[in-house]
């Protein structure tokens, strides 16, 4: 098990968004999180990176790193925790004042203080992997949404995380640009990356996931292999949700 989460809770003001969630992520596995908006799926993903500070929850990693959010984690522990995973945002959040290449090198070069030549070699190979090496000197506003998101993926990969997190990576994209981003994620899947993906693309979820997790109202309602959860859900709530997405009328 790469990561075990026990008793994860998160409230905003007095609204409880995540209610005592237990979660396991296996090394090399791909977990997709689906559910209606407001179900807590994005909050769950953001807690895996401490972008949202959990109120409670014990995180245990395979290498022995253990963080209990009931106590305030130490700053260096938190940084270690954050660098375990790379985050890809719905709205890309590229740094607009930096070129594609600088966006990718910023983490390893400035934060991790790795050796300059190696970082540039890595960054170029990552941009090549997402098919944007020829755009490396362009600024984000000179790139399409799909290209920006692919730079976003390269930037997240550059800190050499063990887990990749995707928060609705295609939701802000024009429909014709969705494919290029999903293709990059599929490539990563084939390389054996451990990933957690929040998405509305059920067909995509079916293709890449090892496990699908359906959330509603702050709980995990159901989880299992995609064929079971998406095709033959046990819970009525899951069935309704999938129906509504497949047949919007």
């Amino acid at each position: 098990m790469f990561l075990t989460v026990k008793g994860l809770s998160k409230s905003f003001d007095d609204q409880e968004v995540l209610k005592h969630i237990d979660l396991e992520i296996e090394k090399g596995n791909i977990l997709t999180i689906i559910g209606p908006s407001g179900s807590g799926k994005t909050t769950l993903l953001r807690c895996l990176n401490a972008l949202e500070m959990p109120n409670k929850g014990l995180f245990t990693f395979s290498d022995g790193l253990e963080i209990d959010f009931e106590k305030m984690p130490k700053k260096n522990e938190l940084t270690k925790f954050r660098l375990k995973s790379g985050m890809v945002f719905q709205s890309y959040n590229l740094f607009p004042h930096k070129t594609a290449l600088e966006n990718v090198t910023e983490g390893p070069l400035i934060v991790q203080k790795r050796e300059k030549q190696a970082v540039f070699k890595l960054a170029e190979s990552l941009l090549d992997k997402v098919g944007l090496l020829d755009k490396k000197y362009l600024y984000p506003h000179q790139l399409s949404g799909g290209q920006q998101q692919r730079v976003g993926i390269a930037r997240a990969l550059a800190i050499e995380p063990e887990l990749m997190l995707f928060d609705e990576p295609t939701s802000a994209l024009d429909p014709e640009l969705v494919g290029e981003v999903l293709k990059v994620i599929k490539d990563l899947a084939n390389e054996g990356w451990t990933m957690a993906i929040v998405t509305h693309e059920l067909k995509f979820a079916e293709q890449v996931s090892d496990r699908v997790l359906f959330m509603d109202n702050g709980y995990i309602v159901e989880q299992g292999p995609p064929a079971q959860v998406l095709k033959d859900p046990k819970e009525e709530r899951t069935r309704q949700f999938i129906q509504r997405i497949m047949n919007p009328e």
Binding site: F95, V111, R155
Partner: peptide, 25 residues
């Protein structure tokens, strides 16, 4: 806010994010 968050996910602390990401913009 996404700029702060993106800085955070690549491991930056407050002052580094402020200096390198937020203030230039």
């Amino acid at each position: 806010k996404g700029q702060w968050e993106a800085a955070q996910t690549i491991g930056m602390g407050y002052s580094q994010a402020l200096r390198r990401i937020i203030l230039p913009q």
